[in-house]
Design a protein around this nucleic acid. Structure first.
Lengths: 227, 227
DNA sequence: ATCAAACTGGACTGGTGAGTCTAAGCTAAA
DNA sequence: TTTAGCTTAGACTCACCAGTCCAGTTTGAT
């Protein structure tokens, strides 16, 4: 019942690359069609109900596919789950880089902070976070992968940015080395999250966006004053 | 298999209040004994395996109790789960206050920060966090309760502390009001967590304690420079 | 037209788990 | 001793589910 109203997430055909001369052999076109339908349906359902909350019959039905077809594309339920998580992990962590590196440090940090926070609070991101976390003991590789693609990459990017700006003499009080840059980055992302993300993960009503904006500004402030 | 080596958490008899003339009617002594055994066993297993990963037969066996007895103490599996979570939520959030309010602001914050971080990284706390989070969609009250008992209370306490110190003219650059105190508190706790807790939740090896200590110091620094 | 691969639907197996029931055992109060 | 309430072991119901099997159908290539 929770899952039904989250259906359209607009990932129906954006993933596979080749689209020229579509109607050809079944071993490519049809295969990827069914494959898509399955991963799409499975994503929605796993995100909404968790690994144990979903049956393969439900997935088959929603994907408009027979159960046998699922087993011809994936080894078993766990294999499907792993594939879903891996794909979602990557798809959900890319779109942040665009906000980097224009303007002075303050405005760059503000923009990056707002984008990052918005992404962390996006329903799909919260669902994935919850999913991976609750599966982390059973599927440790997934936890590791999600950490690297999410937190680790974000901190890495930000700390690179800070280091560059420091060398350019832009915005920071004192020169910093790489280690210090990483600490600052982690502090910034950490304080940015605050408890907003936690509230989302615990299914508590979020604060209004205006408060969020002010909070981001306060975080930029605190960082720039101290770094 | 994961659960077996976490057995002794020393909560066997600390909860019920009356202890005078112990051996009386079975409806009090025996009842609370069994009750204890059940909640103890259920806690360990739910924390380690999650709601769906545990069967009532397993709980009964580990508690040394018949399944029927469980049903005479709790309405059903969900009722047991709710009770467990509620109890754990409260038990795991109390022991922080002791570190408050001695010494100057810097050392107070340092002590509080180290205690808070240690608590957030404690295995039991991580397990509970993971558990409540993965159950938050099915049991929203539990998420709400955990938030209030954990994050909300911590931020509240810290912001009260900051406000008091500000009025005493101790350590802060400029006077702050209550709203600002809350923001600072949330920033501090947020940056303190950094990604340490996330790593724990995702079952990734934690950093050595010395790094943690340095990180806490850096957080105190950043806060005091900017506040 | 023919063929092979992919797909379908539905039946089936084997196993599991929540919750119920029963007949007997224990303990403490009267 | 009797009684009443709690407990126990284990059998039992009923539903669900992962994974398999199969007989028949579609689909696109040759």
């Amino acid at each position: 019942m929770t899952a039904t109203n989250r259906s359209r997430t607009s990932a129906s055909e954006a993933t596979t690359a080749i689209r020229l001369d579509a109607r050809r052999l079944p071993s490519e076109k049809a295969r990827s069609d069914k494959h898509q339908a399955i991963t799409q349906a499975a994503s929605e359902m796993f995100l909404a109900e968790g690994f144990d909350g979903v049956t393969l019959d439900q997935i088959a039905q929603r994907a408009g596919v027979s159960k046998q077809t699922i087993y011809s594309h994936f080894s078993d339920k766990q294999g499907l789950f792993r594939a879903i998580c891996t794909e979602l992990t990557e798809r959900l962590t890319i779109p942040l880089r665009k906000s980097v590196a224009r303007g002075d440090l303050r405005s760059t940090l503000t923009r990056l902070g707002e984008d990052a926070l918005a992404m962390m609070l996006h329903p799909a991101s919260l669902d994935l976070h919850r999913l991976v976390m609750s599966a982390a003991l059973r599927f440790p590789e997934l936890g590791q992968a999600a950490y690297e693609a999410g937190a680790e990459r974000l901190v890495g990017d930000l700390s690179t940015l800070l280091l560059q700006r420091s060398q350019m003499g832009d915005g920071l009080r004192e020169p910093i080395d790489e280690k210090r840059a990483r600490i600052l980055a982690e502090q910034f992302i950490g304080m940015l999250r605050g408890f907003h993300q936690l509230r989302g993960l615990l299914a508590i009503e979020p604060l209004p966006a205006t408060d969020r904006s002010a909070y981001v500004a306060a975080c930029v402030d605190l960082l720039l004053r101290g770094a």
